[in-house]
C-alpha cells in the first residue's frame, strides 16, 4: 500500500519527465492495463456479480422447488422480507452468530498474541516448533470438525477415558444446551488462533528494534516492554487480524454441520447454517435468498471497514 501510494505520486508528478515517456506512450500503457484487467473484471462479474443479482431477484419471489409455480412469481415481492422481520429462529441465529463471532475473535486474538510473543523470542527450539502451530489452520475444516467430534464423543474420546478413570461423570458438551456453543467456540479457536498468530508474528518481525533496545537499556522489564512498546505497535495489526477473523467467522459451517447440527434446539444455529437448512433441506429458495441478501449487506459493510482500517493503519505507520 505504501509503495503504491508513493508510485501513484511518482506517476502523477514525474512520469513524463522520465526518459522516453511521451503522453502517447502513457495512453498506450493505460490501454494495455485495461486490456489486462478486462478479462478479470468480466469473469469476476460473471462468476460473482451475476449470481448476486440473480440472488437479489430471487429474493423477491416465494420460490420453493417443490412447487414450480412459485418461480418468477413477483406478485408479492416483499413477502420474504416481511417474514424475515418476524422469524424468531432467524433472529436467534443472528444472536448466536454474534456470540460465536465476538468470543472466538477475542480468544483467537488473545491466544494468537500470547503464542506469537513467545515464539518471537526465536530460540532454535521455537523455530523448530513453529510449524506445528500452523497445523490446525491448514487442515481441511471438515477434518477439524471430525477431529472434534471424536474428542466430544464419550465412547471414543480420550478425554472421557480420563474422566472415567478419575470417576467424574461428565456430560458431553455438544448436547448440553448451556455448553454446546462453548464446544464450538473451543474447536473454532483451536482451528484459527494460528491465523492471528502468524499475522502478529509477521508484524513483530518488522518491528523496529531501536525503541525496544532503548527501553531495555533503561532497564524496562519484559512486561513493561510488552505493554508499553510492543502492544501499541501491534494495535493496527490486531485490528486487521480481528476483522478478517470476524468476517470469516460468519462462514462457520463444517463445525456446526458435524458437531451439533445447530442443536440442541437452536442454540448453535448460526445464520449461515439456518440459510443452508432453509434452502438445501427444505428448498425455500426465495426466503433463503432474502436472508442471504441481509447477510451479504452486513459483510459488505464489514469489508468496507476493513479497507478503511487497512489504509488507515498504513497511514499511521508512514
Amino acid at each position: 500500500m505504501e509503495n503504491r501510494r508513493r508510485d501513484v505520486a511518482v506517476n502523477a508528478v514525474g512520469h513524463a519527465a522520465k526518459a522516453g515517456k511521451t503522453p502517447a506512450f502513457e495512453r498506450q500503457r493505460q490501454r494495455f492495463f485495461w486490456l489486462l484487467l478486462a478479462p478479470v473484471l468480466a469473469i469476476l462479474a460473471v462468476v460473482t456479480l451475476l449470481p448476486t443479482l440473480y440472488l437479489l431477484v430471487t429474493s423477491f419471489t416465494p420460490l420453493n422447488l417443490a412447487n414450480p409455480a412459485t418461480a418468477w412469481d413477483f406478485s408479492d415481492p416483499l413477502v420474504n422480507y416481511r417474514t424475515l422481520l418476524t422469524d424468531d429462529r432467524l433472529h436467534n441465529s443472528f444472536w448466536v452468530q454474534a456470540k460465536l463471532s465476538v468470543v472466538t475473535v477475542v480468544l483467537q486474538l488473545l491466544f494468537g498474541l500470547v503464542v506469537a510473543l513467545l515464539l518471537n523470542m526465536r530460540t532454535p527450539l521455537m523455530n523448530a516448533l513453529r510449524t506445528s502451530f500452523l497445523v490446525p489452520m491448514v487442515l481441511p475444516p471438515i477434518v477439524v470438525a471430525i477431529i472434534w467430534k471424536v474428542l466430544y464423543s464419550p465412547d471414543i474420546s480420550p478425554a472421557w477415558w480420563l474422566f472415567q478413570l478419575l470417576g467424574w461423570n461428565v456430560q458431553t458438551p455438544i448436547t448440553d444446551a448451556s455448553w454446546a456453543l462453548t464446544a464450538i467456540i473451543v474447536a473454532d479457536t483451536w482451528e484459527w488462533f494460528p491465523f492471528t498468530m502468524i499475522i502478529i508474528l509477521a508484524a513483530l518481525a518488522m518491528m523496529p528494534e531501536e525503541q525496544r533496545e532503548a527501553a531495555e537499556v533503561d532497564g524496562a522489564s519484559i512486561w513493561q516492554l510488552t505493554w508499553y512498546i510492543t502492544l501499541p505497535y501491534l494495535k493496527g495489526t490486531l485490528l486487521v487480524a480481528g476483522l478478517f477473523r470476524l468476517i470469516d467467522s460468519i462462514k462457520t459451517f463444517p463445525l456446526i454441520y458435524i458437531l451439533t447440527d445447530g442443536g440442541p434446539g437452536s442454540v448453535t444455529e448460526v445464520s449461515n447454517y439456518y440459510i443452508f437448512v432453509q434452502s438445501f433441506s427444505f428448498s425455500y429458495i426465495g426466503y433463503s435468498a432474502a436472508v442471504t441478501m441481509v447477510l451479504l449487506a452486513m459483510i459488505v459493510v464489514l469489508s468496507w471497514v476493513i479497507i478503511r482500517a487497512v489504509s488507515g493503519g498504513s497511514n499511521a505507520q508512514e
Binding site: 440442541p264 434446539g265 442454540v267
Partner: peptide
C-alpha cells in the same frame, strides 16, 4: 404428507429443547 420433513424438524427441535432443559 408433503410437508412432513419441515414439520418433523420442528418436532425434533422441540423435543431437544425440552430434554436439554431450555424450555
Amino acid at each position: 404428507v408433503p410437508i412432513w420433513p419441515q414439520t418433523g424438524e420442528k418436532i425434533n427441535k422441540a423435543i431437544e429443547r425440552i430434554a436439554s432443559g431450555q424450555a
